[in-house]
Amino acid sequence: MANDRLRTAMLAAGLTVDSLAEALHRDPKTVERWIRQEQRQPHRTTRVELAKLLKVREVDLWPELGGSPRPAAVETELVHLYPSRSAITGAIWTELLTSVSTSMDVLVFSGAFLVEQYDLIPLIRKKATEGVRFRILVGDETSQAVKQRAIDEGTPGGLEGRIQLMRRYLSDVVGLEGVEVRTHSTVLYNSIYRFDDDLLVNGHAHGALAGQSPVLHLRRAPNGQIWNHYIKSFELTWKNANPEPEAEE
Rank of each mutant, 00 (worst) to 15 (best):
T30E: 05
D60F: 12
K55D: 15
G211C: 08
K126C: 00
V174S: 01
R44Y: 11
G111E: 11
D172W: 06
A221G: 10
K239Q: 15
G139V: 05
E95G: 05
W238D: 12
S68T: 13
E177M: 13
A145D: 05
Y230C: 02
Q117L: 03
K239L: 15
P245M: 10
T16I: 04
R85G: 04
P122I: 10
R26A: 15
H43I: 02
S110Y: 11
E32M: 08
D196A: 08
V56K: 12
S19I: 00
E75K: 04
A112C: 01
A145S: 15
E58H: 13
P243I: 05
T102G: 10
G161P: 02
R40N: 14
E244W: 04
G14K: 06
W34G: 03
D172M: 06
S213R: 08
R182E: 06
L6M: 09
P243H: 07
E153A: 11
G14L: 07
D198C: 00
E22N: 11
T45R: 15
E32D: 12
A205E: 08
Y169K: 01
T76E: 14
G178E: 07
A241T: 06
G111K: 09
P245Q: 06
G207T: 13
R5T: 00
L199C: 00
M104P: 00
P42N: 03
L81R: 10
T46Q: 04
V181F: 08
D140K: 09
R57N: 15
E58L: 08
R57E: 15
V132P: 07
K126E: 14
G157F: 12
K239G: 07
Y193R: 00
R85T: 09
G161E: 14
V146L: 01
A87V: 04
W227P: 12
V201W: 11
S233L: 15
E244M: 09
L188D: 02
L53K: 10
Q39F: 09
A208M: 02
E180R: 09
V59F: 07
R167K: 01
T30N: 07
L50Y: 05
G66T: 14
P42D: 01
E180H: 14
P222S: 13
P63C: 12
G158Y: 11
V181D: 09
Y82P: 06
T186A: 07
V173E: 08
Q148T: 12
K239F: 14
G139N: 02
L165S: 08
G139D: 03
L78A: 13
G111I: 10
F195P: 09
E177H: 14
L15R: 10
V31T: 13
D60P: 11
Y189A: 04
L218C: 01
K52M: 09
A210Y: 14
E177C: 02
K52V: 05
V79D: 05
D152F: 01
D18K: 13
E177G: 02
A205P: 01
Y230N: 07
G154A: 03
S99V: 05
S68D: 11
G175T: 13
A91H: 11
P69Y: 13
